[in-house]
Amino acid sequence: MSELVRSVMLDDISKEEFQNRDSELIEMLRTIWGGRFYILLTVLLCVGGTIYYVYSLQEWWTSKAVITSPSFEQNSKMYKDISMISKSLDAKYDNAISTIISKKALMNIFVEQFNSFNNKNEFINNQKGLLSFSQETLTRKEIAAWASRINVEEVKIENVKRYQLTFQATTSELSEQLLSKYINFISELTINLVNNDILTLVSMNRDVIKNQIEILNIRAEALANKAKEQTKNALYMADYARITNPLENVKSNDFPFELGTQALKAKEDILSKINDLSYYQPELKVLHAKLNWLENFKSNNELFLFDYIKNPSKPFYRDKPNRLLFILVSLIVSLIIGISIAYIVKVLKQEES
C-alpha cells in the first residue's frame, strides 16, 4: 500500500515539474518577444559591425608548389660533361663533384637556398613594386614579416621525400606570381652556386696537375742535360782515344765512349734536336692530356635542380580572414547580448511598476 502511495506522489511531482518548466519556457519566450526590438538592434549592430570589420581586413592567399628530385635524363648533358673529365680528376675531386651533382644533393642545395633569410631579404627588396612598398628602404620588421610568408616544408608522398614550397601574398594572382619569381630567383642562384663549386674543384685539380707538370719538367730537363753532358764527355774520351767505331765487349757506366766518335756525334746531334721533355718523362703526355680536358671544361647552365610534382598555381581559397566564422560568432554573441538586454529591461520595468 505504501508503494502505491509513493508512486502516485511521484507522478504528481513529475507533472508539477513539467508544468513549471512549461511556464518557464513560455515566460522566457514572452521576454524574448517583448525585447525583440533590443535583440534585433543588437544583432544588426554587432553583425553589421563585424561584416564591415572583416571586409576591411587584409586578405592573405597562399600559392603552393610541390617538388621532387630531378630525373637522370633531365641532367644527362651535365653528367656526360662530368664523365668526360672524370678520368682527368684526382679521386678526391672526382668524389666531391659526384657528391655535389647527385640528384638528392641538387634538390637539398635548392631547398637550403630557398629557406635562406638572406636570399628572402634580397628578393623582397627587389620586389618593392609588387609588394606595394612606397619607401625606398624597408624596415627589418617589414622584411621579417614578408620573409615569414615564404616557406618550404618536407612532405612524404608514397613514402618518397618531397618538398612543398609556399608564398603568401595579398591576392591570389600575386601569390602565384611571387612564388614563381622566387623559385626562378633561387634556381638561378643555386645553379651559379653549384657551377662555381664544380669549377672551383676543377680549378684546384688543374693547379695540382700544373704543379706535377712543373716538377716533371724540372726532372726531364735535368735528365736531358745529364744525357747531353754524358754524350759530350764520352765523345771527348772517344776522340782522345781515337775510337771511331763501336768497341765489342766494352761497356762503361757513365760515359759510353765505346760507341765511338761517329755514333756519339750522331747521338749528340739527336739529343740537341729533342725539344719534347716527355721523351725523358713519358708521364708528361698523360698530364698534359688531363690538363687539356680540364681547361676546356665549361659549366652547364642548363641544370635541373628539381622536378615539379605540382606547379605554382593560383589558390582557390584564401587563408584569412575567415569571414563566415567571424560573422557566425558575432551572430551568436549578439543574440546572447540582446537576450540579456531584454531580460534586464524586463527586470527594470518590473521594479518600476
Rank of each mutant, 00 (worst) to 15 (best):
K226W: 00
M78Q: 14
N196I: 04
S98Q: 13
M107R: 11
I157N: 08
F297Y: 15
P70R: 03
E351A: 03
M237W: 06
F297T: 06
Y55Q: 06
Y280L: 10
K273D: 12
E136R: 07
E173V: 05
T166Q: 13
A147F: 05
G49I: 05
A169G: 13
N118V: 11
N95P: 00
I150P: 02
A224R: 14
I339N: 01
D94P: 01
D319F: 02
F167R: 03
L165A: 08
D197F: 06
P282C: 09
A145L: 06
N151V: 10
L130T: 05
Y317C: 00
V250H: 03
T50Q: 09
N196C: 03
G338T: 10
Q262S: 14
Q168V: 03
R149H: 14
I97M: 04
L57H: 06
D11Q: 10
N192R: 06
E17T: 08
A105C: 08
L4A: 10
E173M: 05
V347F: 04
F306E: 09
E188F: 11
T50D: 09
T231Q: 08
Q212L: 09
K87I: 11
E73V: 04
N275S: 15
L165V: 02
W33N: 13
S353M: 09
T244F: 10
N300P: 02
L165D: 10
K290D: 12
F316H: 13
L271N: 08
E112N: 08
I213H: 04
L324W: 13
A234C: 05
F185W: 04
V8A: 15
V329I: 11
D12I: 07
L325N: 14
L348G: 01
I51P: 00
L193Y: 10
S148Q: 12
I332K: 01
V66L: 13
R318F: 09
E351M: 06
N301G: 01
K161S: 14
N115F: 04
K298A: 13
N292Y: 12
N108C: 00
N151Q: 14
K298C: 05
N296C: 02
I186Q: 08
V194Y: 03
P282G: 11
V333D: 09
N118K: 13
P315I: 05
N119D: 11
N20R: 10
Y236L: 14
L294Q: 07
I97E: 05
E214I: 10
N211K: 09
E153D: 04
Q212C: 00
K103C: 00
D239F: 03
I67E: 02
Q281G: 00
S353V: 03
I274E: 15
N184Y: 08
V66T: 12
E16L: 08
L291C: 08
W146Y: 14
L287C: 04
I213R: 06
F306R: 02
A289H: 09
C46G: 14
V160P: 03
I186D: 08
E153H: 01
I32S: 01
K310I: 12
L4V: 11
K349L: 05
P312N: 06
S2F: 11
A220V: 03
N296G: 14
I332Y: 04
V286H: 12
E142F: 01
V202A: 03
L41C: 11
F133P: 01
M107G: 03
D239S: 12
R323N: 15
V155C: 04
L223G: 01
R149W: 09
I243R: 01
D319I: 07
R149P: 01
L10H: 12
D22E: 11
A263V: 13
E59C: 00
V208H: 09
F185A: 02
N311S: 13
D276R: 02
